[in-house]
């Protein structure tokens, strides 16, 4: 999508965000390590405040969601408007498994993650089978989101309805201390980034780019478009489920707004669009920026959304590819024509 929207800018339509990565693994590990170190230092500043640490944990969780959504939407162009629902299958599933069924926390997280991945894969399979376009995939998954929300409200004896559940499992463990949840979510975030980074370098990532840039051409070149779409949905949905279920245990409670459409999906979409759809580190840039802005503007209450609205509009009008790719292509241009990578489809096939 990012390329399609970029058609009106000066960027070549063939230029893709993914193909600029240097081939060496260092280009993946060095930024990842720097990001890890920078984020690991955050509790040194904020560690005294339980509230701020809560905000930071939530920010990391949204970062994880955004990576999962990026794997599905950014890599293969499937507009899954059920990020909250998939994370909620993980979250509610793990909460119910641990509290009602009495499973160990790790086992319930594992099972709930598998459930989220299965459903995500299934949704993708249906969308691929019926060859739904971007908009229709969006609508069907939006309907799924609404059905999930209705279910969580309706199945009151399982989910606690509007008030939600307070979890007994994990209540007196490290999961609900002040600092450890932060590092747990950070580890999750970094491993998601690593997985996505490695994925992009593998043949799967190559297939993703091919089918996103031109579906028909990819199919003709022998890429099984349907299969790779389902792969992306499986991986992304597993990430969402894992992040959602882990978050529920660190928070100690889950309610209908924890995974609501307005609370999760729209925010994640804005975060990804801000950071750069399809770029590796874009989701982190988006999630961090929005968490900080949101915390800074919290005193303005509902009026914050006016600022977000203006931001979203400005973003899509002037940098439809997102802030990171725009800055990096500006940077490349500034460094001179030698580094100026215009469309190089041949190199990316090598």
């Amino acid at each position: 999508m990012s390329e399609k929207l970029a058609n009106n800018s000066d960027a070549s339509p063939l230029e893709t965000v993914g193909t600029h990565d240097a081939r060496s693994l260092a280009a993946l590990f060095i930024p990842l390590a720097l990001l890890g170190i920078a984020l690991a230092l955050v509790p040194l500043r904020l560690g005294d405040s339980r509230v701020l640490m809560g905000v930071a944990v939530l920010g990391l969780t949204y970062g994880c969601y955004t990576i999962g959504f990026n794997v599905i939407f950014g890599s293969t162009g499937q507009l899954f408007l059920c990020v909250g629902a998939l994370a909620g299958i993980g979250g509610y599933g793990a909460a119910i498994l641990a509290d009602t069924a009495g499973l160990a926390i790790w086992a319930s997280i594992l099972l709930a993650t598998l459930a989220a991945a299965t459903i995500g894969g299934l949704l993708s399979y249906i969308a691929v089978r019926r060859s739904l376009g971007v908009i229709f995939t969006g609508i069907v998954t939006l309907i799924f989101s609404l059905a999930f929300e209705a279910l969580t409200l309706g199945l009151g004896e399982w989910t606690g309805g509007d008030t939600g559940l307070s979890l007994r499992a994990g209540a007196d463990t490290f999961l609900q201390e002040r600092i450890p949840p932060y590092y747990l979510m950070l580890a999750l975030l970094l491993s998601f980034l690593l997985i996505h980074g490695l994925l992009r370098r593998s043949h799967i990532g190559w297939a993703f780019r091919a089918l996103r840039d031109n579906e028909v051409a990819a199919e003709l070149a022998g890429v099984d478009v349907a299969r790779y779409r389902v792969y992306a949905a499986l991986i992304g949905a597993a990430m969402l489920g894992l992040a959602g279920s882990t978050y529920v245990f660190t928070e100690g409670r889950v309610s209908s707004t924890t995974f609501g459409f307005g609370e999760v999906d729209i925010v994640v979409l804005v975060m990804l669009a801000f950071g750069g759809i399809g770029s590796l580190f874009g989701p982190i840039a988006g999630a961090l920026t929005f968490t900080i802005i949101d915390e800074a503007l919290i005193q303005f209450g509902q009026l914050r959304y006016v600022a977000y609205g203006i931001l979203v509009i400005a973003l899509f009008l002037w940098m439809p590819r997102g802030i990171l790719p725009t800055i990096s292509s500006f940077w490349r241009r500034a460094r001179g024509p030698k580094q100026n990578t215009v469309a190089k489809p041949i190199q990316s096939i090598e």
Binding site: R304, V306, Y308, G309, I310, L311, F316
Partner: peptide, 8 residues
């Protein structure tokens, strides 16, 4: 984006 502005 417009809907955010109006809603907010």
């Amino acid at each position: 984006g417009v809907s955010f502005i109006i809603d907010g």
